[in-house]
Design a protein around this nucleic acid. Structure first.
Lengths: 223, 223
DNA sequence: AAACGTAATTATGAATTCATTATTCAGTCA
DNA sequence: TGACTGAATAATGAATTCATAATTACGTTT
């Protein structure tokens, strides 16, 4: 009998929210596509009730749009939405940076420093995969380090919407080296626990990232 | 036959989301209280299906907590949550102020100026009701003026959570006059379309507001 | 009387059913 | 041929039903 492992049996609809969100984020369900309840029910092996509950939640997150009597469609990722979302993420990261400086303990900072070194190594090896992973770990750790669950929740929601644009693959050498330089500065500020400084850097880091990406995104309206 | 009025019959679950959210925000459903599906279904005259869908959405907004097989409870408003939420709202208002300066047209600014004068009048008449209304109109207009729907949505979500603490009634004379002074400055910046300036003022305005309120909130953990 | 264990009751999660609205498709008429 | 009508089909919104977990009520034991 195992007493240490707490039982957790997520409800069906929670499970479905996760799975469906992944489908949207991973682009298995394409923007504009309608979400056929029946098919999804069949492939997940559940009835429509929990699936429809999940769709309602996804709609409130803005990943799908519900039209009365006409079902759900995956929302399009528009340039306008991205341009609205970017500065929002930027100020959230700024706040996260400030709060992380005051709330992270030495061990947590050391962990970030480790991942930072990993990231630098990946950069030198031109290993995009490892770079992206380390980069994301660092940002997540900083968000988490802010010890602000409300901030974390909203940041995650916004990040999901941006990730759908999947322009992360477009990373010029120029932008890459600039990003590395920015991260170096961020580490300095973090070690110095310069809240204002780290916050300002993280905000600018994000804005630069987005500027670079939007260039790649082009002048058209849709993804 | 009326052709001008477009038919809009919101789905039941959307209606219920609104109604239930109001019940939580207006404190008809008290924090910690369990939400009895059966009773609510009876009072709304609907079946459990749409009501449960609505609860899922409210849960994703953080207004209720769902426990598997044990139904929904209204989430408590903790001091921790408020302290997490305040700075978030502050930076969102800051961003809103910046974007409003660049995106609002003259008419919209004139409208805000009008409401600002109303607010001043209400202040002089010590009419709290009118003051709060004008104040909220101004803030909403500024958020809306940012022309950023993503920002607007997240701001609304956060504002709902704070409104539940309903400490807005506690407004000292000192804080009240300070708030008026801050609004005067904000109007100046808005007229000058000083984005940075208005943003900074709005952020600080919020932080001051929250500091004042948290004093009233006391040292205990719960509302 | 208090604590435990068990049965009855209730509430919840999920599947199913029903009613209504969209959509598709065949047939008609210009 | 092509646009329109209307029936047939399919999909959705919501109610109902069913199965199971949680809560309550009750009786037993110490």
């Amino acid at each position: 009998m195992n007493l240490t492992q707490s039982i957790k049996r997520p409800t069906l609809h929670e499970e479905l929210v996760e799975r469906l969100r992944d489908l949207v984020v991973e682009d298995a369900l394409k923007p504009g596509e309608k979400v056929p309840e029946k098919d999804l029910c069949a492939s997940f092996g559940v009835s429509r009730t929990p699936l429809r509950e999940a769709l309602k939640v996804l709609a409130s997150e803005g990943l799908v749009e519900l039209q009365a009597n006409r079902g759900a469609r995956v929302t399009e990722v528009t340039r306008q939405e991205l341009e609205n979302t970017f500065p929002l993420i930027a100020v959230l990261e700024q706040l996260a940076g400030e709060q992380a400086c005051t709330h992270m303990d030495a061990a947590a900072i050391a962990h970030i420093a480790q991942r930072h070194d990993d990231m630098i190594a990946a950069y030198k090896a031109r290993d995009r995969q490892a770079y992206f992973q380390a980069n994301q770990d660092i940002h997540n750790a900083l968000i988490e380090g802010a010890k602000n669950e409300v901030l974390e929740a909203h940041h995650r929601m916004l990040a999901v919407r941006v990730r759908r644009a999947r322009f992360m693959v477009n990373l010029s050498d120029e932008r890459w080296s600039q990003a590395i330089a920015e991260h170096e500065q961020m580490m300095e500020k973090l070690h110095a626990r310069d809240a204002e400084g780290l916050g300002a850097l993280m905000k600018q880091h994000m804005l630069n990232k987005f500027t670079a990406h939007m260039k790649a995104f082009g002048a058209d309206d849709a993804a």
